[in-house]
């Protein structure tokens, strides 16, 4: 689904540069993939590169599936605009039927009257529900998730999970999380990022084992 060809990426930190990827070539299979690595290894940056928000310094990333934006932030919602208006914006940039999408998100996010109020009046749970609802309303083949599953109450979490499972025949997940339980719940395979290298594990348990070794070292 995603093919990396000799991809390099580094970023500047105080006192030098940190390598995220150092000439990595790899074809990622269409699977539910957990991304693991120590703090600062570049998990989120890697997600942003897959999404196409950040370009690699060198090399090429090819995608043949529709890929979501990294879920798990509500920053892209305009605080002064209502939920509905924000949904319309996303529908427009993704070329979706605006009113159809407004209805889908209305059903999913359960915001009631708040759907028509400015996003700045939302609680963080409401913002997360809106963000999740919007992402489920566009039919992506790959969902990029950056720690979103932790938000919402138990009932909404169950609903999100069911929504994902209903989508599973057509969609996959690439996920960054610090909760191993979360990763185990959703992903079967794993990628470990460590000082510029990336290793793919067909079994997520092997990936978690490797990650724990790194943390002990």
């Amino acid at each position: 689904m995603i093919e990396l060809q000799n991809v390099s990426k580094s970023y500047t930190i105080k006192g030098g540069r940190r390598n995220i990827l150092n000439g990595v070539s790899m074809a990622l299979p269409w699977d539910n993939i957990a991304i693991l690595g120590r703090n600062g290894a570049g998990k989120s940056t890697f997600l942003r590169m897959i999404a196409g928000i950040e370009e690699p310094d060198g090399g090429d990333i090819r995608r043949n599936k529709t890929i979501s934006w990294p879920l798990g932030f509500r920053g892209s919602f305009h605080r002064e605009l209502s939920g509905v208006e924000n949904v319309r914006f996303v529908a427009r940039i993704y070329g979706q039927d605006t009113e159809e999408m407004v209805e889908k998100v209305r059903d999913f996010a359960e915001l009631g009257q708040f759907y028509h109020e400015p996003v700045k009046t939302y609680s963080s749970g409401m913002g997360a529900r809106l963000a999740f609802g919007v992402s489920m309303a566009v039919n992506f083949e790959v969902y990029l998730v950056d720690e979103i599953m932790a938000v919402g109450d138990a009932r909404f979490k169950a609903k999100s999970k069911k929504a994902f499972q209903d989508r599973l025949p057509y969609s996959r997940l690439v996920m960054v999380s610090h909760s191993m339980n979360n990763l185990r719940e959703y992903c079967q395979t794993g990628l470990v990022l460590d000082s510029g290298k990336m290793t793919y594990y067909e079994d997520i348990e092997d990936a978690i084992k490797r990650y724990e070794q790194l943390n002990e070292a």
């Binding site: 305009h78 002064e80 605009l81 208006e85 914006f89 427009r92 070329g95 400015p118």
Partner: peptide
């Protein structure tokens, strides 16, 4: 073009503080 149009609509709504 689609993105620019969506942005134009959005900017016109928020330009004057709603």
């Amino acid at each position: 073009i689609r993105v620019i149009l969506a942005l134009v609509l959005r900017e016109s709504r928020v330009r004057h503080g709603r």
